[in-house]
Structures are given as structure tokens and as C-alpha cells.
Design a protein around this nucleic acid. Structure first.
Lengths: 172, 172
DNA sequence: CGTACATAGTTCAACTTTCAAGAACGAGTC
DNA sequence: GACTCGTTCTTGAAAGTTGAACTATGTACG
């Protein structure tokens, strides 16, 4: 068990999930894995890259001067720097991204979206949006949309690598 | 674009996401990737396997006689048979799963949970439930819990490989 | 300056996933 | 039986991911 113990009360045992919780958890797992698979396949087929790589291009396209420091890009995509290194290497091979040295910090690298990369994005964005829409927004009522947004923000907040005092969580 | 067209109306162009939809979509992506990463790490650390492998053991543990046909197991976990083959091979090496021939269909294989496998599950389930609880259920109101369940079921329904007539979607 | 430590990014090896074959069996038809 | 076709599961190679080790540079402080 982890360093923080197993979070169970030795007297009462672990707090298992209620039936409703279990049902929701299963539905969550099914929906999220199905959607992720669906988008991965859609993008692999139409854009020649997995969903995460596509997200990297999108982020670059929205950044000033179409470039971002590697670390910023990794944070935005919520992936490790290691994974990003590999991903950018691959995207560079495709000619969709270029690296550039950071003048102010010799350790730093910018990843920047090339014109070709932007073109790929333009060509494939409509199909991607359509897929997302079809899977999620076309099926949810306005109320559900709002609810979902709120719920996801609550969950993300609790999982965020934590802001200040990230290394002293027991003091918060 | 795919065989079914790009779903855009040539007159109006693609229907982009509204601001609220974009916000929800981003929140969704953040929350789901953070949670999946979190659980993967938690289980890798405490149980020595990724989340999906753990899910396979859970499924087996709940099946009659602790065994399932490979295809059933794959369907339940929503993964390909190929992926399952590799996964089971790995779990077999760990001694947590065993294969057995199906007597009635010589092509068939059962995957079955060993006593060791069950023991691993017993040892690690409390920590896993605690992680899920902490990330999701401890943070949502009862109303949100219900909403989330419903929303996820709607989404999953739309993504399901489709029941009968799966190959003639245009007739439905 | 020099030492110590933090940060940025890459690399390596081990592992997992995907995709495209392929081997083996079952079922229907003639 | 023999043909055809679908199903079950496995395999191998390529692609992607992970975590730890490593290089190089910045930063704080005596």
C-alpha cells in the first residue's frame, strides 16, 4: 500500500461503492474508453496521428506565433516531458512541427507549428469536431452539458498536480 | 475525409463548438486524462499492473467459476482480442491468470483467475476503491452522481459498436 | 568565484498497444 | 466429403508510452 496508508478504517473496513456508484463508475469507464478509442481511430484514419498528437498541434496553433516552450506544451496536454519529446520527434518527421532554440534560456526549446502542420489541422478539424459533436454534444441536453462541465471541473480540480504547496499536501 | 463525408454543410461550413461546449470539452479531456493517469500510477505502484489489466482480473473474479472466454472478456473490457492476448500472456507470466481449453469449441480459450490472482485483487482492491472514491465520489453531490451516470450512459450508447444491423447503419 | 541544487529537455530500456497476417476450427451448402 | 465463409485466438513488427538516468544550463548563496 502507498505511503499514505490505504485509506481504510480498520474498524469498518474499506468503504466499498454503493450500487449506484458502481453503476456510474462502470458507465464512466465504458463511455470514456469508447470515446477515446473512437477519436483515436478517427484521427488516425483522417489525419494520420493519435488524438494526443492532434491536441498538440491544436495547442500550438492557438499559441502566440504558433510556438510554445516544450514544458508549457507538456503541461497543457497533461503529459510528461518525456512523452512530449517522443511525440514532437515524430511530428517533426512529418514536417508538421519544428524545434527552435530559446534565445533567453539555452536549455530551452520551442516547438512550433509549421505551415504544413497548420494545413493538416485545417483539413482535418471539421471531421474531428463532427466526431466530437456526434459522440457528445448532439446527444446531451443543454442542462446536461452544463452539468457535465461542472462535474468535470470538480474532478479535474481534485486531480490537478496541485498548485502551491504541492509537496506538502497534508498541511492543506 | 471518411466514407460518410465530413458531416459539414457546404453552405454553412462545419458547426464549430460554442464557447460553453469548448469549455466542457476541455474540462472533459483534462479530467479524464488526469484520472486515468492517476489510477494507472496508483495501480502500477500498488499492484504492479496498469488499470486495464486490473479490470481484467476484476471481471474474472466476478464471473462464474472465475473464468471467461477470451472474447467475452475482451468485450467486457472493450478491447480487441489481440490486445487481450498480449495482456493475458503477461498476467499468465505473473501467475495471476491461467488459460484453459474450451471443451465444446476447440478454437476457444478460457482465461481464469488463479488463487494468486484473487489474492492480489484482495490486497489491492481497497486502495483502488479509495483512489476512485477520492477522485470522483467524494467530490460529487448525490445529484451530480446521478447526472453523471445518466450522461455517461447516453454517451456510451452512441458509441457502442452497435447492436443488430451494425453494418447497415444507414437503415436505422 | 565556487559549490550546491533546481530546471529543461533528451535518451535508453522495458513495457504496452496497434495493425495486419495467419493458423485452426465451426457451420452451411452442395 | 469438399467448398466456402465466418469465428476464435495468436503472432510479429511497428508505433507509442513509461520511469529512471543523464546532459546541459540556470540560480542562489556563501
Amino acid at each position: 500500500m502507498g505511503p499514505m496508508g490505504d485509506m481504510t478504517d480498520p474498524a469498518t473496513g474499506p468503504r466499498w461503492l454503493t450500487d449506484e456508484e458502481q453503476g456510474t463508475w462502470r458507465a464512466y469507464l465504458h463511455a470514456t474508453t469508447l470515446l477515446e478509442d473512437h477519436l483515436d481511430r478517427q484521427l488516425q484514419r483522417d489525419a494520420g496521428m493519435p488524438h494526443i498528437y492532434y491536441g498538440l498541434l491544436v495547442q500550438l496553433s492557438q499559441a502566440p506565433r504558433r510556438r510554445l516552450r516544450m514544458t508549457e506544451l507538456a503541461k497543457g496536454a497533461k503529459i510528461t516531458r518525456s512523452r512530449l519529446s517522443h511525440a514532437v520527434a515524430r511530428l517533426e518527421k512529418n514536417g508538421w512541427v519544428r524545434r527552435e532554440n530559446c534565445p533567453s534560456d539555452k536549455r530551452g526549446q520551442f516547438a512550433l507549428l509549421t505551415d504544413e502542420g497548420l494545413e493538416v489541422l485545417r483539413r482535418t478539424a471539421p471531421g474531428h469536431v463532427a466526431a466530437v459533436r456526434q459522440a457528445m454534444f448532439d446527444r446531451l441536453s443543454p442542462g446536461q452539458l452544463t452539468q457535465l462541465g461542472e462535474i468535470m471541473r470538480v474532478m479535474a480540480e481534485g486531480l490537478e498536480p496541485a498548485g502551491p504547496d504541492a509537496d506538502l499536501p497534508w498541511l492543506r
